[in-house]
């Protein structure tokens, strides 16, 4: 148990440092270096926050599913913890994604919500599904069963993410101009570079937060197991 806490905590400081530097660099580039987009102007710069955040969030959900699968395969509780922390974190970031998406939609199309933007709609559905993760998890008392059921949910929901994106995309009668789809080919070099650095920064941020939460959770679990042992030993001493 002791070394497990250390494994989660290892390199955390360096990772946090790297994430901070990359994100500061990325935002400096966003504000001072990249050109304003001709069509949408300054507001388009929210793209460098919104899109990397959304991609990282979705990867976090899918990673939660993969960790859940590992939990079912190996039966080791550490995978359940990894899966739980990944989903928990992604769920919080998803709120930020929905809010930045709404701001962008309001600024560039004049509405807070645009139903014919399939990515936005799919994201909301995925968010609604994952919002059930914690109610499901904490409504099961037995810890072993909790880990197993949460893992099954994580796998099902992880598989649902791509299916849902495909289904919502198909449901759109007409295709909307799409930033990422059109810009990965046509984006000027400076925009592409800023986007990639911002993407890297967000990934580092997610990994830092994930490791941090994992360290804190396993430290707390270790602490309570030590407390339990002390309590047990005190009672046996008293009995003796």
């Amino acid at each position: 148990m002791t070394d497990k806490t250390q494994v989660h905590g290892r390199g955390l400081r360096r990772l946090a440092f790297a994430a901070t530097i990359t994100l500061i660099g990325a935002f400096a580039m966003v504000f001072f270096w990249t050109p304003n987009e001709a069509d949408q102007g300054f507001i388009q710069k929210i793209f460098y926050l919104h899109v990397p955040l959304a991609i990282v969030t979705l990867c976090g959900f899918v990673a939660g599913g993969i960790f859940g699968f590992m939990q079912l395969r190996t039966g080791k509780r550490v995978w359940d913890l990894r899966s739980y922390v990944a989903i928990h974190l992604s769920l919080m970031l998803a709120v930020a994604v929905l809010i930045t998406g709404a701001i962008w939609a309001k600024a560039s199309w004049g509405h807070w919500w645009v139903w014919d933007e399939p990515v936005l709609v799919s994201f909301l559905v995925v968010f609604l599904l994952y919002a059930c993760y914690q109610p499901l998890r904490f409504a099961i008392e037995d810890p072993e069963r909790q880990a197993r059921y949460a893992a099954v949910f994580a796998v099902v929901a992880g598989a649902f993410v791509p299916i849902n994106f495909a289904a919502v995309r198909l449901a759109q009668a007409y295709t909307h101009p799409r930033t990422l789809g059109t810009t990965t080919g046509g984006m000027p070099g400076s925009m592409m570079l800023t986007f990639l650095i911002s993407m890297l920064g967000m990934t580092l941020l997610f990994m830092t937060l994930w490791k941090f939460e994992l360290t804190s959770k396993s430290a707390r679990m270790r602490l309570s197991s030590i407390r339990r042992r002390i309590a047990r030993e005190t009672t046996t001493e008293q009995a003796a």
Partner: peptide, 11 residues
């Protein structure tokens, strides 16, 4: 849980 889980999944 049933409706809040099943509705998004069945979308």
């Amino acid at each position: 849980l049933v409706p809040i889980l099943a509705l998004p999944l069945l979308l």
